[in-house]
């Protein structure tokens, strides 16, 4: 039997919002340590890796490891039926072919349950090597979303170059070119407004802007986003999910022909 109860259904709603543009379906791998998801987008250019730790749930029970193949479009429809302040419980019998979502209103006067068929998805997990990144940038998530949106008007690629001074985002296309430079902030009162750069060596990489924009659908999950880069390896865009976990997007770079 698998049962996971979350007081804030908004977390699960935001998680779905963050992945449903990139992925049509994904497997939720549940074990006693929590729920993990790893899936590539259809074009195999990006990879989503999400982790929700069991201790972040109000109630979590997983008698046997269970992998639930979910159609994310259907799951989004079901989660739209939950109010933000509802308590959500996901539950499934061992080797079940359906999963049930139960939404309880705060005063318990309204309880809804939705049963969804599970899919048989082939499990192709990729090994992600531990990497010491040459540059790790932390910046306000809203700022990053704004930059990606503004630059995507200029071209289909964004060049991200990181030096000890700061990080520069550039794009060029038919209408012209654009550069956005963010300097490291010196002393900000609020951590989540800071721009920090930890640099081992300068890095410049090029990425497709439409994937960066898809990643920023996770902005509602966290005030801060972390970008990790090393020469010739995928970019990592990471958003924390409250105290319960994280969502990491890996994006393969574009290279000179």
């Amino acid at each position: 039997m698998f049962e996971a109860r979350l007081v804030q259904s908004s977390i699960l709603k935001k998680v779905l919002e963050a992945i449903k543009d990139l992925l049509n379906e994904a497997t939720f791998d549940c074990s006693d340590s929590g729920i993990q998801l790893q899936a590539m987008d259809n074009s195999h250019v990006s990879l989503v890796s999400m982790n929700l730790r069991s201790d972040g749930f109000d109630k979590y029970r997983c008698d046997r490891n269970i992998s639930m193949g979910m159609n994310l479009g259907s799951m989004t429809k079901i989660l739209k039926c939950a109010a933000n302040e509802d308590v959500v419980t996901m539950k499934a019998q061992d080797n079940a072919d359906t999963v049930t979502f139960v939404f309880e209103s705060p005063n318990q006067e309204k309880v809804s349950d939705y049963e969804m068929k599970l899919m048989n998805l082939d499990q192709e997990h990729l090994g992600i090597p531990e990497t010491e990144y040459a540059c790790v940038v932390r910046l306000p998530a809203g700022e990053f979303a704004r930059i990606c949106r503004d630059l995507s008007q200029f071209g289909e690629s964004v060049v991200i170059s990181c030096t000890k001074e700061g990080v520069k985002f550039s794009s060029a296309g038919d209408i012209g070119s654009a550069n956005i430079k963010l300097a490291q902030t010196s002393n900000v009162d609020k951590e989540e407004l800071a721009v920090t750069v930890e640099m081992q060596e300068p890095v410049t990489l090029t990425f497709a802007s439409r994937y960066l924009n898809s990643f920023t659908k996770a902005t509602s999950l966290s005030n801060v986003v972390q970008l990790s880069m090393s020469p010739d390896v995928p970019l990592v865009v990471e958003y924390r999910i409250g105290e319960i976990g994280h969502i990491r997007y890996y994006l393969a770079p574009k290279i000179e022909d």
Partner: peptide, 13 residues
């Protein structure tokens, strides 16, 4: 510029 694939960096387990 040509787009590379994520599978050329991360191997299937």
């Amino acid at each position: 510029m040509s787009q590379t694939s994520i599978t050329s960096y991360f191997s299937k387990r």
